[in-house]
Structures are given as C-alpha cells and as structure tokens.
Design a protein around this nucleic acid. Structure first.
Lengths: 118, 118
DNA sequence: TCCTTAGTTCAAAAGTTATTGAACAATTGG
DNA sequence: CCAATTGTTCAATAACTTTTGAACTAAGGA
C-alpha cells in the first residue's frame, strides 16, 4: 500500500503556494519543519482539526508535493519533501517556514512531547 | 482619490501565499518584477484576462499587500511592494519570482514594448 | 477472534473565489 | 461640451474548497 505523490518535476508553483495559503496547512508545515528528520503521524496534528479534516488537508499537502506520506502499519509517517522543493523552488520553503515561524496568528500544536524514560 | 492598502505590519503570510497561488496573479507579479521600477497601468495585463477580471485580481493583490496602486489621472500605476514584503518575509518574494520565471505553465504577457522614437 | 487504533472515503452542506456582462464614474483631449 | 479612455462596481452564476458525520478499511494486540 503506497499513496500517490507527484514526481519532483510535476510539482507546480501555483499549486504549492495555494496549498500553503491556508493557515491549517501552513501550521502543519511549520510543525513538520520544526521536527525535521522525525517522521510524524497524522495524530500529531489533531490540535489543528478533526481527524477527517486533517485527512483532507494532509492529502492536499501530499498531492501538491509538499509532503511525503509513508504507510507503516496503520500509520502514515509524514515528512516534508525538502529536497524536492529546494531543487525545484530554491529558497522558497525556507522563507515560508521562517515567515511562518514569526506568525502569531497561525494555529499551533501543543507541546505534547514524548517523554523519554530516564 | 487613493485606494486602500494594508500597512506593512498587517500583511499576512497565508493571505499573500493564497493570493500568489493563482496563475493569473502569479503572472502579474512576475511581469511586475520583470519591469521593476517601471510603474505599469492595468491595461498592460489585458493579455491575462478581461478588464473586469483583471480589476478583480489586481484588487486581490493590492488588498493582500503584494502590490501598490497609485491613482494618476484615469490610470492606476501598479508597483510591487518589494520593500514591505522583503521586510516582512525575507527572501519570499525573490524565491517566488525566481520560481515563477522558470514556469512554462504560467500565462505570459506579450512583448508589446513601447517603442522609443529614434 | 474480537477489540482497538489509525486513518480514509463518501456525500451533504456551507462557504469562498473566479468569471462575466452591463452599467457606472472620472479624467483627458478635441 | 462631447467623446474616448481607464478602470470600478454590481449582481448573477459557476466552480471550487472547506468542514462535518457516518460508515468504512486495514493492521495489531489481547
């Protein structure tokens, strides 16, 4: 079971911008960037909306080529497609993430960090 | 007669991204960037849509803080708000313009350059 | 096997955005 | 003043997007 993703060369600038032009999705991307390297599953984003609604927004991000989703058991592990985005649109992702980082108006995800046993 | 523009600090990242996430508006911004310094009037963009439709898209760009429109006679002279955008979202406009410059799928504006008399 | 967890799909409803044409306003040139 | 030029506004429509709940699938654990 694998989910459909566009190839790097199919990623479209207007579609990426339109997809990022939604506060929920921008918050998802900001959070992914803040945990870059760590694959996160969908339930990590439940602060931002209902399960159904997140499924919708995460699908938009994936279909636009902004994120990658890997199916592992019953989970989808979500990561930013930084390499492909940087290759296609140099500097874009970094400037968006930096700007989003300053944005108090964006919804945030609570600090439910997984505690490591001592 | 002056048109309403947001202050620099009112410019919102998701709104700017959403506004740029439209091929017509992205083409307008690309063209403005290619003629930076030169104020252009609305009729310069007629290749991209009807007069009414351009009025709509140009208002979106202005209300988002992406462009500035100055009323001069019966014309509106449109410019990019580069200074404000760069201050608020460093690097964003440049990366969008660079990416849009490569994009064959975006609508283009014909080379009807005003000919200088010899 | 049965239950739980994780997430999707579907259809409906609500909301938003884009496009159009007709009518309008303001300025400029003759 | 009259006509042309430049662009806006309005209302209608079409098209898309977002949100929701109920029903569903698929994997994993007891």
């Amino acid at each position: 079971m694998t989910l459909p993703h566009p190839n790097a060369d199919q990623i479209s600038l207007p579609i990426v911008l339109a997809v990022l032009g939604d506060p929920t999705r921008l918050a998802i991307v900001r959070y992914l960037a803040s945990k870059e390297g760590v694959p996160l599953n969908c339930s990590r984003f439940l602060d931002l909306g209902s399960k159904t609604n997140l499924s919708y927004h995460l699908a938009k991000l994936r279909e636009a080529g902004v994120t990658r989703a890997e199916v592992v058991g019953t989970s989808r592990l979500i990561t930013l497609r930084r390499d492909d985005l940087d290759a296609r649109f140099p500097g874009l992702l970094d400037s968006v993430i930096a700007a989003a980082g300053e944005d108090k108006a964006l919804p945030a995800i609570g600090g439910h960090d997984v505690e490591m046993p001592a």
